[in-house]
Design a protein around this nucleic acid. Structure first.
Lengths: 215, 215
DNA sequence: TTCAAATTGTTGCAATTGCAACTGTTATAT
DNA sequence: ATATAACAGTTGCAATTGCAACAATTTGAA
C-alpha cells in the first residue's frame, strides 16, 4: 500500500495557492527537539523525518504512544483527550513539518480552489492510514505476554519489509517504551527466545527463526 | 464533539441517488450475530447498534480489539494486517449496517454527484473520530499496571458523560477482554480499590472516589 | 585516541498478574 | 416458579514481569 501524500495529484501552482489559503507554515526541527505551542486546531504534516508522541507519567515511565513517519499527521485533535500525564511531541530525527489550520483545510473553501476536493480526498487517505497504524499498535499492546508483544511487533516489521531479518527502528530501550514493558524484562525475554532458538538477535538486529504461520 | 454521520448535510434525494451509485446494501443483524463474508474493499457503516472486533488467539484468550458504536465504521481495510489469530466481527446488540464499496465512495464519481464532496468530507470526519477512539484505546492499553488500566478506562468513560458514577457498557468479563487482562485479576484489583476507598463498585456500576486530577 | 555517555546485557528479589477451581448472585427461558 | 445459564466475586498458587543495581559494550565528542 503506497502512502498518500497530502499534495498528491495537485499541480505545483495549485499547491502554492492552497498553502497561502490554509496559512500553511513550514518549520524545521533538529533531532531531539520538542515541538511546542501547537494550537488546538493545528494539524502537523510530517514532510520529512520522524515525530514521536511521548508520555511521561507520574511514576517515571516513558511511553512512546505513537511514531509518525514521513507523510504522517499529528495534532491535538488526534490524540487522546484522557491523557493527564505529560505528553510531548518530540522529533526522533531532523524533521520538517508543515502546519495548517485543520478546520480551514477540511471545510469548504471560500475561494473554491478547484483542487480542494483532491486535497480532502488525500487527507482522507492519510487519516485512514493513521487508523490502520493505530490498529496495528492496539494489536501489539493487546497481547497478553511480553513474548507475544515481541513476536507481534517483529512480525509487523517483518511484514512491512518482507524479510525475516529486521532492524528495529529505534534503540532497544525505546522499544521497551513502545511495547510498554520494562526494559530489562524485555531483554531477558529476548535472551530466552534466543536460547530457545526462536530468534537470532544482537542489539537492534533480529532474525526471525520461528514459524511465522504459528503466530 | 458531535459525531458526524455519513450523510450529514446531504438531501434525502441526493442520498438515494448516491446509495444507488455506491451499490449500498443495508443489512440487519441480531445480537450475538457474526458479520461474515466481508469483501476486502467493503466498508461497513453502523447505522444502529454496536459492533465489536474480536480476536480469539491460540491459547484461548478473547480480546475485544475495538467497539464500534452508531455512525462508526469498520472493514478489513481498517484493521490490522498482522493479525494471524481468528478475528471476528460480532454484533453486541441488534444492529443495522450499511455496506458500501470503499474505492467507489472515495474516488471521483463518474456521475459527478454534486454532494459527493460533502460525503467525502463527512467520511474524513468519521475516520478522524475513529483515530481518536483508537488513540484512547492505545492510551488505556499502554498503562503498565492493571490498576492504571482501570483508572484510565474509568476516567475515559467518566469524561464522556461528565459524571463520576459510571456504568460500564459491557459485562465485567467483557471488560477484562477489552483491557486485555485476566478477569479474576481485574476483579481482585477492583476489590483492592474498593478496600482502599478509591472507588465504590457493584457489578457494572462504578463510582469514582479518587481525585481525578491525580491520574 | 581516549574518555564519557549512552546503550545493551545480566541477575536476584519482590510485586503483580494469570490460572484454576471454586461459590454466590442475577438474568432468562420454559 | 423454578431451573439453567451467564455473570460476579473470591482465593491459593505458580508464572511472569518490574525494579534495582550492576557489568559489558558501543557510540560520539573532544
Amino acid at each position: 500500500m503506497p502512502e498518500t501524500k497530502i499534495f498528491d495529484n495537485i499541480t505545483e501552482d495549485e499547491i502554492n495557492k492552497m498553502k497561502n489559503c490554509f496559512k500553511a507554515v513550514n518549520r524545521k526541527y533538529i533531532e531531539e527537539e520538542r515541538i511546542n505551542n501547537i494550537e488546538d486546531g493545528s494539524l502537523g504534516i510530517v514532510l520529512s523525518g520522524v515525530v514521536e508522541i511521548i508520555r511521561f507519567d507520574f511514576d517515571g515511565n516513558r511511553t512512546i504512544l505513537e511514531r509518525i513517519n514521513e507523510n504522517g499527521i499529528f495534532g491535538r485533535l488526534f490524540f487522546s483527550q484522557i491523557d493527564e500525564g505529560d505528553v510531548q511531541i518530540i522529533c526522533a530525527t531532523d524533521t520538517e513539518v508543515m502546519f495548517v489550520d485543520y478546520e480551514h483545510l477540511v471545510k469548504q473553501c471560500h475561494n473554491a480552489c478547484s483542487h480542494h476536493s483532491t486535497l480532502i480526498r488525500n487527507m482522507l487517505s492519510i487519516v485512514s492510514e493513521k487508523s490502520i497504524k493505530l490498529s496495528n499498535r492496539v494489536e501489539v499492546l493487546s497481547q497478553r505476554t511480553l513474548r507475544k508483544k515481541l513476536i507481534t511487533y517483529f512480525n509487523m516489521i517483518s511484514k512491512e519489509t518482507g524479510k525475516k531479518s529486521i532492524v528495529i527502528p529505534f534503540s532497544l530501550s525505546n522499544l521497551s517504551d513502545y511495547l510498554c514493558v520494562d526494559r530489562s524484562a524485555m531483554l531477558r525475554e529476548m535472551k530466552k527466545m534466543r536460547d530457545e532458538g526462536l530468534i537470532d538477535s544482537h542489539a537492534k538486529k533480529v532474525t526471525i527463526l520461528y514459524d511465522q504461520t504459528m503466530y
